[in-house]
């Protein structure tokens, strides 16, 4: 463990719905790189990702031992300690899901929704912020005339980029991407991959994917999740 390590997994074991997913994993990762996790389907890659924002706690019973320490701005903290507020954690750890999931509201509202949850007031700077993140995901030019229309009217690729923008608006330290391109066509997929690489300067990215070529193109570190262990493969 050296000073630059900003994600530390320590003796982590996890059972989810009575199925062992991980057993005694210890790892250290530096910040601002892309870490990919591949592996056969059904080994719990998505569940693994949800350990980092504790989203699994919303859907089922799991048992976790060991710790995950992240740097959320003020030094390393164990995200499973008791006094860790879930809302704070999830605002610092963004997530994009396998299928685009825009909320049933306008494009503009989708982006400002997390800000509103964090208690920020609507105002001039919010409009600027929306423009900035939409530009960052190369979506602004396409939607600038219809920010007030329902987000569900966008194409699949546009929706997924919107979801990415929505995650970015809170300036997360870590971004979790769960097979983000699997429901997109080739063109949209290529755009999103380029985007992911661009984002590396801003935050650490954990990418789950079962496309080998995608992983090779984008990731700095590659692991395979199989048989309850993470094995470095690239």
């Amino acid at each position: 463990m050296n000073r630059q390590d900003k994600i530390i997994i320590d003796k982590l074991s996890f059972r989810y719905r009575n199925r062992p997913i991980l057993e005694d994993i210890s790892l250290c990762w530096r910040e601002k790189q892309i870490i990919a996790v591949t592996g056969p389907s059904g080994t719990g890659k998505s569940t693994f990702l949800s350990l980092f924002n504790r989203l699994w706690e919303e859907t089922g019973d799991g048992r976790l031992t060991g710790s995950i320490q992240l740097n959320l701005g003020g030094g390393l903290v164990d995200i499973y300690q008791r006094q860790m507020p879930l809302a704070t954690l999830r605002r610092s750890v963004g997530m994009v899901f396998q299928a685009p999931n825009p909320l049933p509201m306008s494009i503009y509202k989708n982006i400002t929704f997390p800000l509103m949850l964090a208690g920020r007031k609507n105002g001039e700077e919010m409009t600027e912020l929306v423009e900035r993140v939409l530009t960052q995901v190369h979506l602004f030019a396409e939607v600038k005339d219809r920010l007030k229309s329902d987000a569900r009217n966008l194409s699949g690729g546009q929706q997924q980029r919107l979801c990415l923008a929505r995650a970015l608006v809170l300036e997360p330290k870590i971004l979790l991407l769960d097979e983000p391109t699997s429901s997109l066509d080739q063109e949209a997929c290529r755009k999103l991959e380029e985007l992911i690489v661009e984002l590396k300067d801003q935050c650490t990215i954990l990418l789950v994917s079962h496309y080998q070529d995608q992983v090779q193109r984008t990731a700095d570190l590659v692991y395979e999740l199989a048989d309850k262990r993470l094995r470095r493969v690239g």
């Binding site: 924002n53 919303e58 999830r90 605002r91 899901f97 999931n101």
Partner: peptide, 17 residues
């Protein structure tokens, strides 16, 4: 819809929100 709930949770909403 469950996907809405997951999206909202992942954005750091509390249960009340």
């Amino acid at each position: 819809d469950q996907s809405y709930c997951r999206a909202t949770d992942a954005l750091g909403a509390t249960a009340v929100q």
